[in-house]
Design a protein around this nucleic acid. Structure first.
Lengths: 353, 353
DNA sequence: TTGTAGGCGTTATCAA
DNA sequence: TTGATAACGCCTACAA
């Protein structure tokens, strides 16, 4: 049978290496031309008898289009690049998992990259994605410049930023109202009579960290409360700093009666410290954490937590990108600023005296 | 300046769309031939004056090799496909993050795919990766067949399996000794005098779940203890089932005095249940969980936990793949069965009476 | 409906 | 050292 012959040729084409089956093979097998096969694959019309012939050949030979070669020609890869700071952060992975799901339903595949919270690698990975001819990009940026982003956008590769904006970048952005998330959380503590409220912030150069600190400061201002800078601790959004900063706070001369921790990992660390030091929540310390409902529930007592609408962030980002890809996007770029929710647990109590 | 001209040409090449700068452009700009530029890019020798000329042109024009086109020619993409069941599992993401890091240091990029624990999608994503011309694959398989894998391996695309083997697949595998991990954990409970030990297993069709159950059964056998099938609960490796199964166990007519939960998510759920029901650990129930040291520490009392050597899994898998890529690999495939560790917390106590 | 031919950006062969 | 030229696998006018 001629299919066997073709396969044999393939098999021994290059010193035993089995090559991929190409349109050319299908053409040879069917006796039709490459152009005809290609057209059929892309939805063109062929005679019924040829259709059967081609289908049969594709099946028998196990032909698969080489999307790379196709992309080289069409300048479209039907894949979206996703760029995040780290894979070890449930906030990131949860969102991109949802994004991926939506994109797949729309015929797009994704290439997920993490840049290990490293600005240099962020650049490199971005270039890598461009090199892979992605049709669009969803990114949670760290230190990428607007110029770089605009450069890509000028190449007609749409970009949607999540979680953090880049000033001057000409692209859509989906994030949450971090400022008021923080404002509302701290306000809860104030309402419960707390005067000395500690905050464990993220790195000063990260947008969300700044916004959350701003909220803390503004609510103090609005309630005409003075801010004690000793109560403001700067962590690095990682578990250990949450642990260390909390211990710093309770060991200080004039410790706070309540603490607000501004991301998930640091909340984890803070809880570890609290357990280790046998601090009673909320009697000895009122506590509000951030992100990840699951953890809030397994800790006893259940924590009050600021929760970001991760699913909605994912949906919004994916939808916007799909619109841009279709060319339906608005002329101007949009900033979606979604609202967070404050989940009430049992970790806040009224301050005594 | 002629660079401006070239850029202008590019800019208006196709109705305003900015095209990528190619070798051709660099050739034009320098007055050299495409072949020479290409050779230089790939480490060939050129005259010093031309070297400067080319470097200058590349810089000015912002040239980047089109890795797709290159891959089309070389049949190498310098990218590795990584295929995992889900991105919402710290065990998975932690491992692939480490793997990625090692691969990058060796000049490889990665394409990370999750198949959302769906066998059909697992197939599709695998095809997607092949379509992207990956040079190798690291996968945590679900229901992929040996035939399919061998097919890929025959194309000289090496595959390394992690966490779970595929019987009959001709590829290297890195996993842990799940059986003895479980054996040792349950043995601890037996040593502490427990006679009725509950186990919350994973799905029957998942390799690791079976192995962990086998360990439970074998240690019972070795200690000549009868197994009460009511104490064996089958979850689905997700949090909620951990929660439900634990409640099932404690609500049963003859509840266990100790429980072993066999993965991270279910441990999380079980702890939630324990907190909710106000069960005192270890007085009322001895407890051993699985994976993720961080969580074990934030829960009070600290949990005894079976810990997998995730970093080592990552290193081993990456190293093996790199060897195969270099062609240094052994002729035969290897199965690396790494050992787990049992971290002792305060969640086990001697049974009374 | 089908086929021919040219090109996408790169690499590789072989003269020059 | 350099440069024409032919691939790689696919798509797409245009012609038959």
């Amino acid at each position: 049978m001629s299919d066997k012959i073709i396969l044999k040729v393939k098999r021994f084409a290059i010193e035993g290496r089995i090559m991929a089956v190409t349109i050319k093979d299908v053409a040879k097998y069917t006796g039709l031309s490459i152009a005809t096969i290609s057209k059929y694959i892309n939805g063109g019309n062929v005679l019924e008898k040829n259709r059967i012939l081609i289908d049969d050949a594709i099946e028998k030979l196990g032909f698969k289009v080489n999307t790379i070669a196709r992309g080289l020609k069409t300048n479209k890869s039907m894949t979206i690049g996703i760029l995040i700071p780290t894979l070890e952060n449930i906030f990131c992975t949860s969102i991109i998992s949802d994004i991926e799901n939506i994109l797949i339903q729309n015929g797009y595949s994704t290439i997920i990259c993490d840049y290990r919270e490293d600005g240099k690698m962020e650049m490199e990975k971005l270039d890598f994605l461009i090199g892979k001819m992605v049709d669009g990009i969803i990114s949670m940026p760290l230190s990428i410049t607007a110029e770089k982003l605009n450069n890509i956008i000028d190449r007609e590769i749409p970009i949607v930023l999540i979680d953090r904006p880049v000033r001057g970048a000409n692209c859509d952005t989906v994030l949450v109202d971090n400022l008021n998330a923080s404002y509302n959380a701290v306000e809860q503590l104030i309402i419960h009579g707390h005067k000395r409220i500690g905050i464990i912030c993220g790195p000063r150069d990260i947008y969300t960290a700044n916004e959350r600190l701003k909220g803390y400061l503004r609510v103090h201002e609005d309630y005409d409360m003075q801010v004690d800078s000793d109560l403001i601790k700067y962590g690095d959004y990682k578990m250990e700093s949450g642990y260390n900063m909390l211990i710093d706070l309770i060991n200080s001369d004039n410790p706070p009666t309540a603490v607000f921790v501004t991301n998930y990992e640091m909340t984890l660390g803070a809880v570890m410290a609290i357990n280790e030091k046998n601090i009673k929540i909320p009697e000895e310390l009122s506590f509000i954490g951030f992100d990840n409902l699951q953890m809030a529930k397994i800790v006893k007592p259940s924590l009050s937590i600021v929760v970001q609408p991760m699913k909605l962030i994912a949906e919004t980002a994916a939808d916007i990108l799909l619109q841009r890809l279709k060319g339906n996007g608005e002329k101007t770029t949009v900033m979606h600023r979604l609202k967070t929710e404050l989940i009430h647990g049992d970790s806040i109590c009224r301050v005594k005296g």
